[in-house]
Amino acid sequence: MKLLVVEDETALLSEIVNFIKQEGFICETASNFEEAVQKINLHRYDCAVIDITLPGGSGLEIISRLKKISVNTGIIIVSAKNSVGDKISGLNLGADDYLAKPFHLAELNARIKSVIRRRQFDGKDKIIFEEISIFPETREVTVNTIPVSLTRKEYEILLYFISNKQRVLTKESIAEHIWGDQADSFDSLDFVYSQIKNLRKKINDCGGGDYLQSVYGVGYKFTSK
């Protein structure tokens, strides 16, 4: 899998690249408009992460050019301007997703994987982690081929964890991934714990391993040990 990250803030760019590279992706970067245009003309990418405000031109322009060159490239917009207008015009140009800065790296990672899945396999592939299989198209989960009935939230959490294996996911990041802005309604993030407790129990009940580790007070890590 080959990715292009277009972002003018090099400090942010390097963190994004570090994070994504650990997922086994080949990652190229561009930090301005010209560079980005050159790269999309020369190479084919499975997914491009594009910042809208760039020196030398607009990220929206890159998206429309990219769409002409390679229809199948998945596109995720990241923007500091959390603007409804930008979001709509970006999605209209053919972008798959929009992420406002600042975002959680794990969230970006999960979205990249989701976009690639949709683009490459029409969402028809299955995600396998040890004895756990996830079928994104039908939102079904099996453990040791036994179907597990998960609530929508539990399913989302499991998918988020499996997209970010071996990573520490903060409670905040999980809460925002599942509840979005509504997560602000909570005065504490204890509810994340109860969701995870249920999820762990359901997997264990089907003979699945205990992959969910608690990391101090910070959050959780999904790991095969």
Binding site: E9, A11, L12, E15, I16, N18, F19, A80, K81, N82, A100, K101, P102, F103, H104, L105, A106, R167, V168, T170, S173, V215, Y216, G217, V218, G219
Partner: peptide, 26 residues
Amino acid sequence: LQTPIAIIKAKIEALLQNNIGPEESD
């Protein structure tokens, strides 16, 4: 402000991935 916040956030998240002691992690 969004951009520097985004950078700090990414850096902290990257640091949290490391095997650090409970105190630092806290």
